[in-house]
């Protein structure tokens, strides 16, 4: 029932967004035909934002419902941000927020799309030299190069994150409490090719 409500909510959201896209498209065309270039540009910027949010929602439908034994917290799903600058952040988390020992035990998966700021970061991530850092390792996730980083300090519970660059986008998986092999196995269940196709 809960899932049905969420699905209906997403559907209604997309339908409203579709209306906005069409509305801004009409505005852009009218302004452009009337020689109001700046107004046409503004309407197109609105369209771009709508498009990025819709794409984000589409990506959410591609993400796994479960990672390892943890179920997705669908009500926490979010698509936020500014396209063209910081990028649009698509967020989903899995599992309970608090583990039995009281520690944070939530796995989070984030996809940042179309952020010009990520170009340089992604270039760095692709450098093999990063593999020399004992806390970092370059691995392949579904055929894509990715970086696994140990983010926990000595004495703390294991915490790793996987970062997978895709042009101007970045997929980040954070899984506190899981070891390196486990997080890599989890990451391999993410449909990277389908996400790459959706956000290209």
């Amino acid at each position: 029932m809960k899932l049905l409500i969420v699905a209906l909510g997403l559907l209604l959201g997309s339908s409203l967004q579709a209306q906005d896209f069409a509305k801004h498209l009409t505005e852009a065309r009218t302004a452009y035909t009337g020689g109001k270039l700046e107004d046409a540009r503004f309407a197109m910027q609105q369209m771009m934002h709508e498009l990025d949010i819709i794409t984000g929602k589409e990506v959410l439908t591609l993400l796994p419902q479960k990672l390892d034994t943890l179920s997705a917290n669908i009500p926490h799903d979010e698509v936020t941000g500014a396209s063209g600058f910081t990028g649009v952040v698509i967020h989903r988390d899995y599992g309970k927020a608090i583990a039995q020992d009281g520690s944070e035990d939530k796995v989070s998966l984030e996809v940042i799309t179309n952020s010009p700021l990520l170009g340089a970061l992604n270039g760095l991530l692709a450098l093999p030299i990063l593999g020399n850092n004992p806390d970092q390792k370059v691995v392949k996730i579904n055929g894509y190069k990715a970086l696994v980083t140990k983010v926990s300090s000595t004495g703390e519970k294991d915490a790793f994150e996987v970062q997978l660059p895709l042009n101007n986008s970045l997929i980040t998986l954070k899984a506190p409490g899981y070891n390196q092999d486990k997080i890599v196995a989890m990451a391999n269940t993410i449909p990277v090719a389908a996400i790459a196709k959706a956000i290209q």
Partner: peptide, 25 residues
């Protein structure tokens, strides 16, 4: 492209349209 849910293509074409308008401005 938007109508067929090909959002990547819709975005690319929109970006080109924006470039066109900006160059005219």
């Amino acid at each position: 492209a938007y109508a067929t849910k090909n959002y990547g293509e819709a975005r690319y074409a929109l970006q080109q349209a924006m470039l066109g308008v900006e160059l005219q401005i």
